[in-house]
Design a protein around this nucleic acid. Sequence first.
DNA 1: GTTACAAAGATTGTCGATCATTATGATGAA
DNA 2: TTCATCATAATGATCGACAATCTTTGTAAC
Lengths: 230, 230
Amino acid sequence: MFFSRDKDDSNTVVSLIASALRRDISFGELSPDKRLKIEELRTRYGGSSHSMREALTLLSSEGLVEANAQRGFRVASATEEDLKDITRMRCEIEKLGLEWSLQNGGVDWEGQIVASHHALSRAQKDVITSPVDNALAWDEANRAFHLSLTAACGSPRLIATQRQLYDQSRRFRLAALREQQINFEWTTEIHQQLVDAIMARDTETALDCLHQDIQGNLSHADSMRNPLSQ
Amino acid sequence: MFFSRDKDDSNTVVSLIASALRRDISFGELSPDKRLKIEELRTRYGGSSHSMREALTLLSSEGLVEANAQRGFRVASATEEDLKDITRMRCEIEKLGLEWSLQNGGVDWEGQIVASHHALSRAQKDVITSPVDNALAWDEANRAFHLSLTAACGSPRLIATQRQLYDQSRRFRLAALREQQINFEWTTEIHQQLVDAIMARDTETALDCLHQDIQGNLSHADSMRNPLSQ
DNA sequence: GTTACAAAGATTGTCGATCATTATGATGAA
DNA sequence: TTCATCATAATGATCGACAATCTTTGTAAC
């Protein structure tokens, strides 16, 4: 009876479908603007048409899918504009969350950061040696790291927004990874500086590092131009 | 054939149900934490169980409804914590949007603000004379005014976030209106100062006015403690 | 070449049914 | 009486089939 059952809905059909769709959209297996016909999706992911519709409605509110009344769903388009918008918003939101966390966070928060930073370092090494296999784990670790930065901000809504924006940015980051446009040495360096600044409670430096980290690897214009054809 | 049909989904059953639910939650006719049983809702709003589920999924992603797997939906709780969080986030997001709009916006943007400000003034007069009848129209005008402030910010995601937060704040504002805790003279004054500062392109004053406007009327702790029993 | 109209394809919504989970209440033992 | 256990009812989750509606496509007449 340890921890009994999870109360969250990670086991319903709808959330399973939604997760699968999220993954495939993030990895570019479903390219931007591709029409998502219910019947096609059903043969691919299973589930009834209702479950599929519900999952698509969900994804559409997360910004990964666009819904047009009477004209079905399609994968959200991924233009350079979108990348700029997402990056800009992530910068502002995460900086805000980090600032608030620096005001509220205690030792336990620092521990969380150290832990997620460590895990990210490991994942980064793995993804360098074998990008294809470890891409998802790497991105997941990166996500956990960024979420730990704002974990003590005290605003559930800020965290929800951050999470949503991060999920929208995944496509671009994974595309950049595929095209080897990510400078891991630089990223590692920035992450280390960021963690150091946080431990030293140097707000200004920390915010500046975070800004660079977010802006850094995602400024390549054409990351989504050549989606992985599978 | 003028403007033909709207392409947005304002006529599907699901969005009709969602709108009705939004309204009733905002007005407190469905009190916080109230369980939302599918069958009950069907007799009240019509529609099939699937449509109802889809609408609830939608509202849940907007933050007005909470979903627990295997245990159905309930109206999102509305604690003092929530009010603080929403207000704080609205402040930051709208200030950011206003700042960016001041950088990008031109004459057309200014026109939009003047227009929505005028409409809000009218609605405010109406709601003072007859609060019950004009509450929704007033809040709608207020929403339009706030959205016009950030309309030129160039970030669709910022606007979407702002819209979502505003919709979450509605319950508290309408509750404050019912309990006559809104100081309309003060609000009118702040709005005028805000518009003046924007026209003068005085960023600092404008941001300060906006901050006060958002923080001002919603700082009453117990607005939701006595929901309107109907 | 354009327009009108019919056919085909998709989306949206409804009904009814089944299965799983949760909530409720009754029964019996300590 | 109080508590645990188990049966039963209530509710939620999922599915399949079908009707209604809207979009798109294709065709034929002008």
